[in-house]
Design a binder for these strands. Structure first.
Lengths: 211, 211
DNA sequence: GTCTATAAATTGATAGAC
DNA sequence: GTCTATCAATTTATAGAC
């Protein structure tokens, strides 16, 4: 039934267009006309799928959230060593280096903008879920490494904060070199991070390809 | 001559009002009417002092920049130990903890928003100067600690990224506890950071008041 | 220099034909 | 379900009196 799917497709196309534009321009600077144009949908038609601009943004965040969970699940499946999984997280910004340099982190920059709507704003709460997904997954990796509850939580915050801060700096200074160099340093820090009671966990296939 | 000073005062009041509002609401969400109201100045009068909204924002950034330089200079004067100066930097967000939790870092969140205007946008370049001031000062402290050029640069990026990332997380998750706990961890990291050739510099009056 | 009124453009959202 | 036309509100910026 092409008709039924056409509807779902247009909705998905609108979300995709909005996702890109929210990353590139931010929420407030992106107009619904921008989104409609990019999705090749007449402006008025957009309101058939999303009652308000906020509803569209919530759909974008929901899509981000699902994509994040899927990515984490694929790392969980591909790597047995939690430390190797965390390395994927640290290296991830390099896969889209150009866009990170130009527009910052698609999740972090969105959160920063949405938080200014106020702590009770639905969009702010939705954005916060994104970062929570990051931290919760990172936390569970450190737990799998043998960290106790409090330490795993703190190390997760350390790691996510470092990666987020690195992207902010690299974006602001427009420096791909800074992005790569600092992420490498975070990776090195990660190799030493872990349960403080143990000296250092075994790292069988620790890659030293660079430098 | 009260008349001459009235002019300078109103200009300064507009900048102050705009600084607060840009922090609380961001650039795009803050209207010139907001600024005029908060400064108790009629809207039309604002244009006597600032030709455009961008010009006002540039004045805000210039004020931020000057305030930053003065703060750094006061730390330079008050502390002889570069590591003690860097501790001030790490602890600084605690002085305005409530506002950091509510609105994020006044400099970092502004940069993130302005960078989306494009790398050649005057406001984006102005914002980038702010973070550059942070990094340059931090860099010079690590140099004073005896770090070589490249290492000092990298450590400065480490430190500023960690603090910025921590503020982003604490703001998004609305957690003063996370802010305090993570900044304490950055401080502990700082105590161990330094020239890699030396084991660890002397820390005469290292405070352990917390915990 | 200061202020009121308003222009000009943008934009979120709706009405209503098809 | 889809699309055009348009409203209503907002907002940057200007005109012109005082």
């Amino acid at each position: 039934m092409p008709a039924a799917y056409a509807s779902a497709d247009k909705r998905a196309e609108l979300v995709t267009a909005a996702t890109t534009l929210l990353h590139e321009q931010g929420f407030h600077r992106t107009t619904l006309a921008d989104v409609a144009d990019r999705a090749s949908v007449p402006l008025g038609n957009l309101y058939y799928y999303f009652k308000t601009k906020e509803a569209l943004a919530e759909a974008v965040i929901a899509a981000h959230e699902q994509a994040l969970r899927e990515r984490f699940a694929s790392w969980d499946a591909a790597q047995r060593d939690p430390r190797a999984r965390l390395r994927q997280l640290v290296r991830a910004p390099l896969d889209t280096s150009d866009r990170v340099i130009q527009f910052g982190c698609p999740h972090g920059s969105l959160c920063q903008e949405l938080e200014k709507l106020g702590k009770d704003a639905p969009l702010a709460r939705a954005g916060a879920r994104l970062l929570a997904v990051y931290i919760d997954w990172t936390d569970s990796q450190f737990r799998a490494l043998g960290c106790e509850k409090r330490e795993a939580r703190a190390l997760a915050a350390d790691l996510v904060a470092s990666v987020q801060g690195t992207m902010l700096l690299a974006n602001t200074l427009r420096s791909p070199e800074l992005l790569a160099a600092q992420l490498r340093r975070v990776e090195r820090w990660l190799d030493g991070a872990g349960p403080s009671t143990l000296p250092s966990p075994a790292r069988p296939n620790r890659p030293r390809s660079r430098s």
